[in-house]
Amino acid sequence: MNIVENFDLFAPRLINKKELFSCGHRACSGCAEVLSVRLMCKALGDNTVVASATGCMEIVSSMFPTTAWRIPWIHVAFENAAAVASGVEAGLKALRKKGKIDDRYIKVVGMAGDGGTMDIGIQALSGAMERGHDMIYVCFDNEAYMNTGIQRSSGTPMGASTTTAPAGKASSGQKTWKKNMPEIMVAHEIPYVATVCPSYPLDFIRKFEKARSIEGPSYIHCFSVCPTGWRSPSETAVSMGRLAVETGVFPLFEVENGHYRMSADMPKKLKPLRSYFKPQGRFRHLTDAEIDAIQERVTAEFNKLTQKAKFL
């Protein structure tokens, strides 16, 4: 039975009912990034501390004097979520060891957008992962600097039109291939790397639970549909996430101690890229030839990945 299609049947039994990220936040309607944050909180539970980077999720959740966070949360700056999280982890560890706080196990999470992770924050992230802190780092990837007005990042996909790599008479938008962040994290040889998409909530929750159970650093790359920045209808955020997975643009997989595994939710046969591009304004300018070129790359990348997953 397909879990996603029978979600209403499974959800009440499998998902924590407690809302640790409350309603009343200021995210756009149909924002899958905020949906992901909410699911993450459900998966990780009360005994979690979050260090967030500057970006959409920080802005929408913490307008002083209000907050959407029912778990301890800290924001310091844009590029340092991983470093702040590593400090929180070290601080809690020292205090627990000295008996200055109670003995409970607390998971520390660092989170940022694609810009805060793949561009300006990659040094702090690499350092924190290399040092082996007991933390989860989550990249909420909406494929551009959304908070500041849809500027390109190294996570923006080839061909997407953004405000700093716009499509025009002499340009087809983004000129570079998306940085392969999960692979960079795998190269850090950390215990756990996974990709998730909130359109697959059970896979999403299971991976967060696994990351929580692992002592040491783990990295989760979360595909986060942003209707505002992608110029796509807000009611399609969840289906768009599914299309990204079904076309192989964003494959769901995990890498545990170096071993790759494709998620059960991955389809046997990929859908054509066009079905995913079509509803999105950011790809509207692309010619057939350009889409074909991108399709070729997507297929090749997907094959490379499944090859790795074969040798389990």
Binding site: V76, V84, G87, A90, G91, L92, K93, A124, G127, A128
Partner: peptide, 28 residues
């Protein structure tokens, strides 16, 4: 000395990490 000595990768992260640890209640 019974302390966590975090060998950060930059001063930016040094300050970020002590901010995080101080916020957690540690003497940093």
């Amino acid at each position: 000395l019974d302390a966590e000595f975090v060998t950060v990768e930059s001063e930016h992260s040094a300050m970020s990490a002590v901010i995080g640890a101080a916020a957690a209640g540690a003497r940093v």
